[in-house]
């Protein structure tokens, strides 16, 4: 009986949707968001002439944004939605997901749409946007 209950609980946990947005206090979140905005602007400015996806993703600001973890996912998706940009590696690294059809690799519009849809489905983007 005990074993059955334990099994049921574990199965139940596995079926829970993954939570992508950690809970934080409002002031913690605001401070982190300001830092994210600063890093994102620096990354855009300092990588805009680059064609190398490797170099774009190896920029120190990009690394720091990845290091913020899941709290940054809504902000990255907002950036992607409002200003484009090659955020795909950061989104994949943080979420450990990849909603992009392999045939669409390199098709920036389709990759963007796939990630925005993923964001809506996971409650990280307003579904009306």
């Amino acid at each position: 009986m005990v074993e059955e209950n334990t099994l049921e609980e574990n199965t139940s946990e596995e079926n829970q949707p993954e939570e992508f947005a950690p809970r934080q206090s409002a002031s913690e979140s605001a401070t982190l968001e300001r830092e994210f905005n600063r890093l994102a602007e620096q990354w855009r400015r300092e990588t805009m002439s680059m064609s190398s996806s490797t170099d774009i993703a190896m920029h120190p600001a990009y690394y720091q944004i990845i290091g913020m973890g899941r709290v940054a996912l809504p902000w990255i998706l907002r950036e992607l939605q409002q200003g484009g940009g090659h955020w795909f590696l950061a989104l994949g690294a943080i979420s450990r997901q990849n909603p992009v059809n392999p045939q669409d690799r390199g098709k920036v519009r389709k990759m963007t749409e796939a990630w925005l849809q993923w964001g809506r489905e996971n409650g990280l983007l307003d579904s009306n946007n």
Partner: peptide, 21 residues
């Protein structure tokens, strides 16, 4: 630039997991 050199304006070419190659 790689796509442009290949006369392709539909894809971002790069040997990486998110680029076309």
């Amino acid at each position: 630039c790689v796509a442009w050199a290949a006369a392709d304006t539909e894809r971002w070419w790069w040997p990486s997991q998110n680029g076309y190659w």
